[in-house]
Computed example of a mutant assay.
Amino acid sequence: MPYALKCTLSGLLLLFAADACAQLPGLATCTRSATLLACVDPEGNAYSVATAGNTTYMRGFEQRGKRYWAQTTSRYGQLTFFTGLASDGEAWVGYSRRVGWTTLNRFSSSGGASARFTCSRLTGC
C-alpha cells in the first residue's frame, strides 16, 4: 500500500476516533463522605445517595423534565425493596430478589411503566 494512502487512511481513522470521543457524554463530578455521595453531570442533572444501615436514600434532579425525585431502598437479606416519588406526582415501587447468581426484578410506576426481568451474573439482563 503506498505511503500516501496509508497516511490518508490513518488520518481518517483518527478523525473518526476523535469524533467518537467527542460524542461521549461527560462524566459526573462527585463529592463524597463516609455516608453521602453527591454528583452533578455536565447536562445539569444532580443526585445524592446517603446510606443508613440497610437503607439507602436517593434524591435527584432531572434537567430535561425539570423534576425532582426521591427514592428509598431497603434491603432485607436477599430482598431489596424500593419506592420513589417525583415532583410531577409520579410514584414507583419495585423489588429485587437474589437467588444464587440470578436476580429477579420487578417494578411499576403510576405513569404506566412496569417490567419484570431476570438478570444473571453470567449472561446479564
Score class of each variant (00 low, 15 high):
A34N: 06
L85Q: 10
T72Y: 06
T51F: 02
T35I: 10
R75K: 11
Q23R: 14
A86I: 05
V99G: 04
A20I: 08
F117I: 03
G124N: 01
T29N: 08
L27T: 13
Y95R: 03
A50T: 05
T29V: 15
A17H: 08
L13N: 11
Y47G: 12
S96H: 03
G44H: 03
Q71E: 15
G11A: 15
T103G: 04
G89A: 13
A20P: 04
R98M: 07
C119E: 02
N54H: 08
R32D: 12
G44I: 04
Q78G: 09
Y57P: 03
C30D: 07
L24Q: 11
G60N: 02
G26E: 06
L12W: 10
S114M: 09
L122V: 05
L79F: 11
A18Y: 05
E62N: 10
T123Y: 01
T35A: 14
D88V: 07
G112Q: 14
G44K: 01
T29H: 07
G53P: 03
S120L: 01
T8F: 14
G94I: 02
V40E: 13
L36A: 12
F82V: 10
G100C: 02
A86G: 06
L24T: 09
S110K: 09
Y68Q: 14
N105L: 02
S120F: 00
G94Q: 01
T123W: 00
L15W: 09
D41G: 06
A113T: 11
T8E: 15
L104N: 04
C125F: 00
E90S: 09
G124H: 00
Y68L: 15
S109N: 12
Y95N: 05
T51P: 01
L9Y: 14
V40Q: 09
M1Y: 08
L37T: 15
L37E: 06
Q23Y: 07
E43D: 12
A4I: 11
G94H: 01
G89E: 15
S110I: 13
W92P: 02
K66I: 08
G44N: 05
K66H: 13
R97I: 10
T31R: 07
F61K: 02
R97N: 10
S10F: 14
Y76K: 08
L14S: 09
F81I: 13
S114P: 03
F117R: 01
F16C: 15
L27N: 09
L24A: 12
A115E: 08
L37I: 15
A22P: 04
F82M: 14
C30P: 02
G26V: 06
N105R: 00
A113V: 11
Q63E: 11
K66P: 04
S87I: 10
V99S: 06
A20G: 10
N45M: 05
C119H: 00
D41Q: 05
G94L: 01
C125R: 00
T35P: 03
A91I: 13
A22N: 07
C119Y: 00
A70S: 12
Y76V: 14
F81R: 10
D41M: 02
S96L: 04
C21I: 12
S74I: 13
S109R: 04
